[in-house]
Amino acid sequence: MAKEFKRTYKFAAYTSTFLTFFLTLVVGVFFYFSEIEMYWFLVLFSIVCFSFSFFFIQYRVEKFIYRRVKKIYDDVRLLDASTFDKKQITTDMATLTREVERFAETKKIEIETLKGRENYRKEFMGNVSHELKTPLFTVQGYILTLLDGALEDKAVRKKYLQRANKGVERLIYIVKDLDMITKLEVGDLNLNKERFNIIELIQGVFDLLEMKAAKKNITLTFDKEYSKRVIVEADRDRIQQVLTNLIVNSLKYGKKDGTTEISIEDLIKNKVIVRVTDNGEGIPKDKIPRLFERFFRVDQSGSRKEGGSGLGLSIVKHILEAHGEKIYLESQLGVGSEFSFTLEKAK
Rank of each mutant, 00 (worst) to 15 (best):
K159H: 11
I174M: 05
S340G: 08
E110Q: 14
V205R: 10
A13F: 11
K345R: 14
I174S: 05
F124K: 13
L147N: 12
G204T: 07
L333H: 00
V26N: 01
M211W: 03
E225H: 13
F124R: 13
K133C: 08
T24L: 11
D237K: 13
F50E: 06
R102D: 15
D237F: 10
G254V: 02
R236H: 14
L44I: 11
K215G: 00
N165S: 11
V139Q: 05
Q240C: 01
N119V: 00
K133M: 14
R77G: 09
G307P: 07
R102E: 15
L78G: 15
G310E: 02
D74P: 01
F341M: 06
D75R: 00
F18V: 13
S340Q: 12
Y160V: 01
L209S: 06
L320D: 05
E118H: 00
Y59M: 10
E131L: 12
Y226Q: 06
Q300F: 09
Q203I: 00
I319C: 07
F52E: 10
F137R: 00
K108L: 15
G116N: 15
N127E: 09
A81W: 00
R294N: 05
E105G: 04
F5Y: 15
E37W: 06
I218E: 10
E330R: 12
T20L: 10
R236A: 12
G282S: 04
Y32T: 07
F103M: 10
N245V: 04
R157E: 05
E210Y: 14
E200C: 07
V175G: 01
D266H: 06
S53K: 09
R195V: 11
D75A: 02
K176L: 01
V61Y: 13
V48I: 07
S129K: 14
K317F: 13
F54Q: 02
G141T: 15
S303K: 04
S337D: 08
E105A: 15
F296C: 03
K305H: 08
G280L: 06
M125L: 15
E293N: 13
D207Q: 09
F196G: 02
D207L: 10
A322R: 11
Y173D: 15
D299F: 03
T244R: 09
L320F: 06
S34P: 00
Y142S: 01
V205T: 09
K154T: 12
K115W: 05
E169A: 05
N197A: 09
I111P: 02
D266W: 00
K287L: 03
S309C: 03
K287W: 02
I57E: 01
I273R: 15
E200M: 05
D148S: 12
Y226R: 08
L313I: 00
I327E: 04
I198N: 01
E330W: 04
P289C: 01
D223S: 14
R236E: 15
L343Q: 07
R238S: 12
N119A: 02
E281I: 03
D188S: 14
Y66H: 11
D188G: 11
S340W: 11
R238C: 04
D148P: 00
K215A: 08
F50M: 04
K71A: 14
H323V: 08
H318F: 08
V29L: 14
K255V: 15
E330H: 08
V186Y: 15
G116K: 13
R290T: 00
T24S: 13
F22M: 09
T277E: 04
Y120M: 08
D299L: 03
I143C: 04
T95Q: 10
L208F: 04
L161E: 06
V43N: 07
F56M: 08
S53Q: 07
V48D: 00
E200P: 07
